[in-house]
Design a protein around this nucleic acid. Structure first.
Length: 261
DNA sequence: ACCTCCCTGGCC
DNA sequence: GGCCAGGGAGGT
């Protein structure tokens, strides 16, 4: 991608570019620009362009990118197409439209969600003291704080539940109530859970909403410890997995392995 | 720091 | 026919 130029950009859904003023603003800011670097921070994809504009993309719930030849028929829900100078297309497909693509100037980057992200959970792992410091005094449940992207960025609902189970931490524990040992266990669990998820190519649920760029499904659904396993036996101790709702997000845990303090 | 909203395919 | 899933943004 680095060095490629966007020959033409077509936006076909308003909501996909809702963080910009208009479809045309996005197309105009990206067209003719050359990619300088491609990064990821949490769940945001960040593409630096030679113009100073930054393309920011988020897959939301159901977004995916595909690389295609211009002659290939478009999948349903293709909301954005960038034609590259090697005559391939980058297509953004997103049925539920929770994802977005933005073209930001410097000020807009600083006032966007990107600026509120904590260190990346995978590439900038915190040490125990730093995470403990950012949780100190927080009364919100640790599940909510993991989803918040502030203490650390990158965990969504599935992996937050998986991490808490592996760390033996109850999802409703107030962030500031975690002891030093639990904070350490949480960080180790992040490393293990994300490492396994990356190796497996991510988690494709039964709805097949998430697919790898080549259209293949990820593999780790069977490996999940608690997510989506309400009433099924905990793989560690056999106790029935419970499902509760935290901040209107479905939350799964083992009441035996993750006792409430 | 909390709540509400957005959206559509899949399922009951 | 109606409900559910859930990421982030914006408002209170």
């Amino acid at each position: 991608m680095v060095g490629r130029t966007f020959i033409e950009v077509r936006v076909s859904h308003d909501r996909t570019v809702r963080n910009n003023a208009s479809r045309a603003e996005v197309a105009n800011r990206l067209s003719g620009r050359t990619v300088q670097d491609v990064r990821r921070h949490g769940k945001f994809l960040i593409i630096g362009l030679d113009s100073g504009y930054t393309m920011v993309a988020h897959l939301g719930m159901s977004g995916r990118f595909s690389i295609a030849q211009p002659s290939q028929t478009k999948s349903a829900h293709t909301h954005f197409v960038a034609v590259l100078d090697n005559n391939t297309e980058i297509r953004f497909i997103d049925p539920r439209t929770f994802g977005f693509i933005a073209a930001y100037d410097e000020d807009e980057v600083s006032s966007s969600g990107l600026a509120r992200l904590g260190p990346d959970a995978w590439t900038e792992p915190l040490d125990v003291d730093d995470l403990a410091a950012s949780l100190r005094g927080r009364v919100a449940p640790i599940k909510a704080l993991l989803l918040d992207q502030g203490p650390m960025a990158g965990l969504g609902n599935i992996y937050a539940d998986e991490v808490l189970h592996l760390a033996h931490v109850h999802p409703l524990t107030a962030g500031g109530d975690l002891n030093h040992h639990q904070v350490g266990a949480l960080l180790e669990a992040v490393r293990v859970v994300l490492g396994a998820a990356i190796d497996a190519g991510g988690t494709t649920l039964d709805d097949l909403a998430y697919l790898l760029p080549d259209g293949q499904a990820g593999e780790s659904l069977e490996g999940l410890r608690v997510y989506g396993r309400e009433d099924q036996p905990c793989r560690t101790c056999g106790t029935a997995i419970q499902r509760i709702v935290v901040r209107s997000r479905s939350t799964h845990f083992c009441p035996s392995c993750q006792p409430h303090v």
